[in-house]
Design a protein around this nucleic acid. Structure first.
Lengths: 133, 133
DNA sequence: ACTATATTTCTAGTTATATCGAAATAATAG
DNA sequence: CTATTATTTCGATATAACTAGAAATATAGT
């Protein structure tokens, strides 16, 4: 309803959702947290370990984690006394996709170099493919 | 020197530079401005036109443009009385690449779905393709 | 030099964010 | 039930961001 030309697909992120996600990452401690959690996928990391790992007081870290969580970039699940946080990689992909969708509109040549940079480390499904191409 | 494991390459963006870039985009007016400028590549758009186009006072817009500019996301060039702003797509790519580098480290399967989503609209050199698949 | 136009800088009020001590909540063990 | 551990919420302060009116700067035309 809100100025909608886009067909809503769940993996796409809309403007209203992207700003909190970018804001959540636009803070050095939170960016470090998110990167740490990405490196610890898929096991995740308890709140206390995150705080200790980055040398930030637990309550401060808790507030950062809640920002990341509200933005959808991390998820939290309780295990006993601990609350284990995990990076939400689908959300990361949605953010990236949102940013690239704009520059791709009608001009693929803009994103092509990016895909080329990315392909060496991230070529799709190297094992189940019959062959490449 | 600052905790450096990465080999510095110019197209890669470091932590210190990415936070201002994300912060610049983490504001709805500025995100709109950037998207507008991407759509107007490569001609660019004068500051006044940007302000008028988004119905924001010129001085307010000027301050937003300077944030985007400091972050390296836009460039400015004077033409007569006007100052024409352009989106810096290399910077956008560097931001995206930074975010993806982390999730690709050692696990290509994370970014592969993203590349697959991107490929239909942005496959490298689309004209030289024989046909679509 | 004067006027009109385009944009920025100055300034100030308002709002939001970051940080962290202290208190509160939640789960486990004895 | 009490003690211990893990985490969050509350509250207060400090810093930064957003907004926009008013003044300043820069360019072009007359």
């Amino acid at each position: 309803m809100t100025a909608g030309n886009y067909i809503h697909k769940s993996r796409y992120m809309e403007s209203e959702n992207i700003v909190p996600a970018l804001a959540a990452l636009a803070q050095s401690t939170r960016l470090d947290v998110f990167r740490l959690l990405v490196r610890h996928e898929p096991e995740g990391l308890a709140a206390g370990e995150i705080a200790r790992s980055l040398a930030i007081p637990q309550n401060t870290m808790s507030s950062h984690l809640s920002v990341l969580s509200r933005a959808g970039l991390v998820s939290a699940r309780r295990f006993g006394r601990s609350i284990v946080y995990r990076a939400d990689l689908a959300c990361l992909r949605a953010v990236v996709l949102f940013m690239l969708r704009d520059c791709c509109e009608g001009r693929p040549e803009i994103c092509a170099p990016l895909i080329e940079d990315l392909t060496p480390c991230c070529s799709p499904k190297p094992k189940k493919r019959k062959a490449y191409v």
